[in-house]
C-alpha cells in the first residue's frame, strides 16, 4: 500500500507526517504566548479568524531548541475536529512511500513513542511521526 507524506526538517534531521491529517501549511505568523499553558505550547495564532493553538515541535519531541528562520513553517493539522498548528524548521516536499519502504522503529523508549515508522527512500532515512500521538496532550 502506498501513502503520501509531507517531508520536513527539524534541526538537521528529516521527519515526515501523514498527509491525510494535514489541513494546510502556513508561513510563520505572530504567535501569542499563552501563560501557564503546557510547556510545549508555543501559543495561539489567528488563522483567518479562528484562534488555533500551536505546538512547538522541538519542545514536544524533546529536541534542542533552534531559532525560527525564514524557512520555518506551521503545519496545520485537522484531526478529529481538533485544529492544531505544529512548528517545523522546513517543509521539504511531498513524498510517496509504500509498505516495503517502511520499518518499525527499534527502540520504543523516550521520544520514540512519537515515531510510528522509519521510512527509507534512496539514501534518506525519514522518521514518520505519529500525528495522533503528537496531538494527544496526555502524552508528555
Amino acid at each position: 500500500m502506498e501513502g503520501q507524506y509531507i517531508a520536513l526538517k527539524l534541526g538537521h534531521e528529516e521527519y515526515a507526517v501523514d498527509i491525510l491529517g494535514v489541513k494546510e501549511i502556513i508561513r510563520l505568523s505572530h504567535i501569542t504566548r499563552v501563560p501557564k499553558a503546557p510547556f510545549f505550547i508555543q501559543g495561539v495564532i489567528n488563522l483567518r479568524g479562528n484562534v488555533i493553538p500551536v505546538i512547538n515541535s522541538h519542545l514536544r519531541l524533546g529536541l534542542q531548541q533552534i531559532e525560527m528562520t525564514e524557512k520555518s513553517r506551521i503545519i496545520i493539522f485537522n484531526i478529529e475536529d481538533t485544529v492544531v498548528g505544529f512548528t517545523v524548521d522546513e517543509v521539504i516536499e511531498v513524498i510517496t512511500l509504500n509498505d516495503e519502504m517502511l520499518e518499525k522503529p527499534q527502540m520504543v523508549e523516550g521520544n520514540n513513542k512519537y515515531i510510528k515508522n522509519i521510512g527509507k527512500m534512496n539514501d534518506r532515512l525519514i522518521m514518520i511521526l505519529d500525528s495522533d500521538k503528537l496531538l494527544d496532550l496526555s502524552l508528555i
Partner: peptide
C-alpha cells in the same frame, strides 16, 4: 470572544482569546 479550544481549556487566568 473565541475559545482557545479543547487543547488549552482550563488554563488558569485565561477566559479566551480575541482577534
Amino acid at each position: 470572544i473565541s475559545s482557545l479550544g479543547k487543547m488549552l481549556s482550563g488554563v488558569p487566568g485565561i477566559a479566551g482569546a480575541s482577534i
